[in-house]
Design a protein around this nucleic acid. Structure first.
Lengths: 130, 130
DNA sequence: GATACCGGTATCCTTTAGGATAGTAGTATC
DNA sequence: GATACTACTATCCTAAAGGATACCGGTATC
């Protein structure tokens, strides 16, 4: 007895329509700049508005300052965020999304939705095993 | 002179609406299973239909058999793909997306679109610098 | 004067990802 | 009998990711 496995029809059509290898290239290009554990979570976090270094760290929870610093620099290089320095005393630094990072809105939204549902699925399947 | 940077309004509303920290958790859950350089490209590649090991390798181009084997196992564990063995001579093995992996359609589509546009942007900005 | 907060750096370390290369058992093909 | 294909595995290695811990200069606060 073999389970019949259907194939994603939307993607299949899409793939036939616009050359699949091109599609893979797009995905790989995206992953190239968005790689790692932190970039997308950071962009998502900053979508609530500009934040200061320590606030970002607290908001994410378990990122060390070294890693956060490195990630922020890379995001700045790729023009996803801007670093603002205010000459208050003491100096205030905020990180803010650029307009370009808005182009990631849909990706973030879909990923967040999927991740949320995936978690529910995992939790449910874990319960059903008890 | 300071550039005024606007903040993603869609995400901002969304964030206010459904609790941002939850959103980050969703994204981090998603990345937890979809991490690395190969998982999403592999799922995307398989969306064209079941494929054999060597065919996948050829299609992706620069993945070594060791890495491919490891990635496929992880995708199988997470129920994104199924491994089919046919007792032909010689044995034929195909890898096929499960129905669950369809839930990633939108994520893949958005990511592909974004990546494609991002590449165009990079190419354009490189040209303008010459 | 001691302590605490901010925005990070510096140093060290472990783990993982991922690549290079070679090889294997089985079959088929010339 | 040599070669080639399939579906991998084994071994070795490097580079990068990421974490732990400590620290720094400056300021403010108690």
């Amino acid at each position: 007895m073999e389970t019949q496995v259907k194939i994603s029809s939307e993607l299949e059509r899409n793939c036939a329509r616009l050359n699949c290898s091109e599609g893979v290239a797009g995905i790989r290009d995206a992953l190239y700049v968005l790689n790692g554990k932190w970039k997308l979570p950071l962009i998502f976090t900053l979508s609530g508005g500009p934040m200061r270094f320590k606030d970002i760290q607290r908001s994410i929870g378990d990122i060390t300052p070294k890693v956060l610093s490195k990630e922020l620099k890379e995001l700045e290089l790729n023009e996803f965020i801007v670093r603002n320095i205010y000459s208050t005393t003491p100096v205030t630094v905020t990180y803010q999304l650029t307009p370009y990072s808005q182009s990631l809105d849909k990706v973030l939204l879909e990923l967040k939705d999927w991740g949320t549902k995936h978690r529910q699925r995992i939790v449910a399947s874990r319960k059903s095993k008890l």
